[in-house]
Amino acid sequence: MGAVGLDDREQTIRTGYEKHVPALLAYVRRQVGGDQHKAEDIVQETLLRCWSKFDGDNHTMLRPWLFKVARNLVIDGYRRGGARPKEVDGTGWLEQEPAELDHIENILSSVVVSEALKALSPAHREAIYLTYFLGKTIEEASDALGIPPGTIKSRLFYGMRSLKLALQERGAGSPTAPAPASAAR
């Protein structure tokens, strides 16, 4: 492609493109916070408008006209972004906090867990209650019950396994209880 067969208007636009577009692209890139792709889109739209609307009679007005159109497109894009909902890129759900269970759901869950706890032996129920519900450490539960810490650990292990089975029998799945206080130490 050469300049052969171009009229004066097309030649002015081509010369203006070669002369002004690098500066225009740098200007728009600064306006959009360094986003190269967005800047290229705005410059392309500016050039399309130039091609269809610019009166090529005044060569000295091309540069100011290009910069004014590009500036207006940046402003329009900014305003449009504020008026529209935020675009979703597919990862927004990772940032959302899970919905809190309502009061009735908490009550129903506690009833199911209470019933499942009744299915455990008193020794297992006692160890789970002291550590998981009262937040005592293994050593504190050991002192309270007067039995060795290893026995508390064993009762917790087998008690939680039995509790999981009891919950599954009731259709509630496995419990998501926190670890006993001493497990974090």
Rank of each mutant, 00 (worst) to 15 (best):
M1W: 14
D7T: 00
D8E: 12
R9E: 15
Q11P: 03
T12D: 04
T15E: 14
G16M: 08
G16Y: 10
G16R: 12
E18F: 06
E18L: 05
H20I: 05
H20R: 00
V21Q: 10
P22D: 06
A23E: 06
A23Q: 10
A26P: 03
A26F: 02
A26H: 09
Y27A: 10
R29I: 06
Q31R: 03
G34K: 02
H37L: 13
K38I: 09
E40F: 13
E40W: 06
I42F: 04
I42Q: 03
V43A: 00
Q44M: 08
E45Q: 15
E45C: 04
R49Y: 06
R49M: 01
C50A: 13
K53Y: 11
K53F: 07
F54H: 05
D55K: 10
D55P: 02
G56N: 03
N58I: 10
T60V: 14
T60I: 08
L62S: 11
P64T: 02
W65A: 01
W65N: 01
K68W: 02
V69L: 03
V69A: 07
V69I: 14
N72S: 05
L73D: 09
L73C: 05
I75F: 00
I75A: 07
I75V: 14
I75M: 04
I75R: 05
G77Q: 04
G77L: 06
Y78I: 03
R79L: 01
G82N: 15
G82L: 15
A83W: 13
A83Q: 11
A83H: 12
R84N: 09
R84P: 00
K86M: 14
V88Q: 13
V88K: 13
L94F: 07
E95I: 01
E100G: 08
L101P: 05
L101Y: 03
N106I: 15
S110W: 11
S110N: 11
S110P: 01
V111Y: 11
S114M: 09
E115R: 04
E115D: 08
L117F: 07
A119Y: 01
A119L: 12
A119G: 00
L120Y: 06
S121C: 03
S121T: 14
P122R: 12
P122H: 13
P122E: 15
H124E: 15
R125F: 04
Y129D: 14
L130W: 02
L134V: 09
T137F: 07
I138F: 13
E140L: 05
E140D: 09
A141T: 09
S142A: 12
D143G: 01
L145P: 07
L145V: 12
L145W: 08
L145F: 11
G146D: 13
G146A: 14
G150A: 12
T151E: 09
I152T: 04
S154C: 09
L156H: 00
F157V: 01
F157D: 03
G159K: 03
R161A: 14
R161S: 15
K164E: 12
L167R: 08
E169H: 05
G171P: 11
G173Q: 02
P175Q: 10
T176N: 14
A177R: 15
A179M: 15
P180I: 07
A181S: 12
A184L: 11
